[in-house]
C-alpha cells in the first residue's frame, strides 16, 4: 500500500498531447476515480501510472520510489482491464496464481494465497473452472482476485464495470468497495460513468483534454465545480440565460461568471413562489414519470432545463403551460465562464 504522486507529467503520442502537465496525488489507501469524456486522457494517465507508457517529462512516485522510468513488469502494481483479460488457456486458480508463479512464490504459499484471494471475492468453489465457463460477474471477480493476490502497491482499474449490465454493476460496485476497504489498497479507477465515480470513490479527478480540471472529494466537486465543464460533466447543470439574471440573488456573483442550478435543487409550481427564493419562468415541455422520481423538462428563455424530484412533490401542471422554477439562492452554482 502506497501513495502515488504524479507531478508535471506530460505524455505525447506523435503530435497529440495526451497528458498535459498533469499533477495529482493519490493518497495511501484511498479510492480515487478518474472521470472524463473519451479522449480526455484518463486511460492514458492510468496506463502511465501502470508503466505501459513512459512520460516525456514529469515524475511519478509510488511510495518512496521514483518509477517514471520503471517498466510495468517491475512496478509491482495490480491492474484490472475493461474486458478482464483472463487467460483463456488457464483455470481460474492458475489465472489468479499467475503473478505469484512469476514471482516464484513457494508452491504451498501460492496455493494458500490463491485460496485466500478467491475467498475474498467469494469464488472459492470455482477454482478449477475455465474463464469461458464463468458469467460476466464471476469473470470480473476473478480478474479482481488476480489483480490483488500479489499484494501490489496500488490497484489500477480500467473501466472495470462497464461490461456488466446495470443490476450486476451495482452489486459489483458494493463488492468492489467492500474489498477495497478490507485490504486497504490504494485504488485508482477510470470511468466515464459519473454515478459510478460518485458511488465508489472518496476522491474524484475530472479530466479534459489531457488536463486535470478539478480534483477533490465527490461532494465538493459536485457542489462547488471550478468551471462550466466540471459542473456539466459531474451531475447535470441548468444554465441560467443572461436575460434571466437581473432580479435574482446570486451568491459569488462577479464579472465573467456563469450560473447554474442542479436539477434536484429546483421546485416547480404554476404560480410565482414566495419571497426569498430565486425563480425563473418557463414553459413545461414534458413530464416523465419514473416510479418514485419524475423528471420535468422546461423551456427557460430558449434553454432547456431539467428538474428531478419525487413525483409526489410535483403538483399537477398543464402541459405546455407557464410554470415557475425556483430554488434556494445558496444552491446556485457560480463558475468562471
Amino acid at each position: 500500500m502506497s501513495r502515488v504522486d504524479v507531478a508535471n507529467v506530460t505524455k505525447k503520442f506523435g503530435h497529440a498531447t495526451a497528458l498535459d502537465d498533469v499533477s495529482i496525488t493519490f493518497e495511501d489507501g484511498g479510492f480515487f476515480a478518474l472521470l472524463g469524456p473519451s479522449g480526455s486522457g484518463k486511460t492514458t494517465l492510468l496506463r502511465t501510472i501502470a508503466g505501459f507508457y513512459f512520460p516525456e517529462s514529469g515524475t511519478i512516485r509510488i511510495g518512496e520510489q521514483n518509477v517514471e522510468k520503471v517498466p510495468v513488469e517491475k512496478r509491482d502494481i495490480g491492474m484490472m482491464f475493461q474486458n478482464y483479460a483472463l487467460f483463456p488457456n488457464m483455470t481460474v486458480a492458475d489465472n489468479v496464481g499467475f503473478g505469484l508463479r512469476v514471482r516464484k512464490v513457494p508452491a504451498a504459499e501460492e496455493k494458500r494465497r490463491i485460496a485466500e484471494a478467491l475467498e475474498l471475492v467469494q469464488l472459492g468453489h470455482l477454482a478449477d473452472r475455465r474463464p469461458s465457463q464463468l458469467s460476466g460477474g464471476q469473470r470480473q471477480r476473478v480478474a479482481l482476485a488476480r489483480a490483488i493476490v500479489t499484494n501490489p502497491r496500488v490497484l489500477l482499474l480500467d473501466e472495470p464495470l462497464s461490461a456488466l449490465d446495470k443490476t450486476l454493476r451495482v452489486d459489483m460496485q458494493i463488492e468492489l468497495k467492500r474489498i477495497q476497504r478490507e485490504i486497504g489498497i490504494t485504488t485508482i479507477f477510470v470511468t466515464h460513468d459519473q454515478e459510478e465515480a460518485l458511488t465508489l470513490s472518496d476522491r474524484i479527478g475530472i479530466l479534459k483534454d489531457g488536463r486535470i480540471v478539478q480534483a477533490g472529494p465527490p461532494r465538493e466537486v459536485y457542489d462547488r465545480p471550478v468551471d462550466a465543464f466540471a459542473a456539466g460533466f459531474l451531475g447535470e447543470a441548468n444554465w441560467l440565460p443572461e436575460a434571466a439574471l437581473p432580479g435574482l440573488a446570486l451568491p459569488g456573483a462577479a464579472a465573467g461568471r456563469r450560473f447554474a442550478t442542479r436539477p434536484e435543487m429546483l421546485s416547480i409550481s404554476a404560480q410565482a413562489p414566495g419571497e426569498g427564493r430565486n425563480a425563473v419562468k418557463g414553459r413545461l415541455l414534458q413530464r416523465v414519470f419514473a416510479g418514485a422520481m419524475a423528471t420535468c423538462l422546461v423551456d427557460v428563455a430558449g434553454t432547456q432545463w431539467k428538474l428531478v424530484a419525487r413525483d409526489r412533490d410535483i403538483p399537477e401542471l398543464p402541459g405546455g403551460g407557464e410554470v415557475w422554477l425556483s430554488w434556494d439562492p445558496s444552491d446556485t452554482l457560480a463558475v468562471p465562464a
Partner: peptide, 8 residues
C-alpha cells in the same frame, strides 16, 4: 498487458 502488469 495483463501478464506484464503481474510482472511477467
Amino acid at each position: 498487458d495483463a501478464a506484464r502488469s503481474m510482472g511477467a
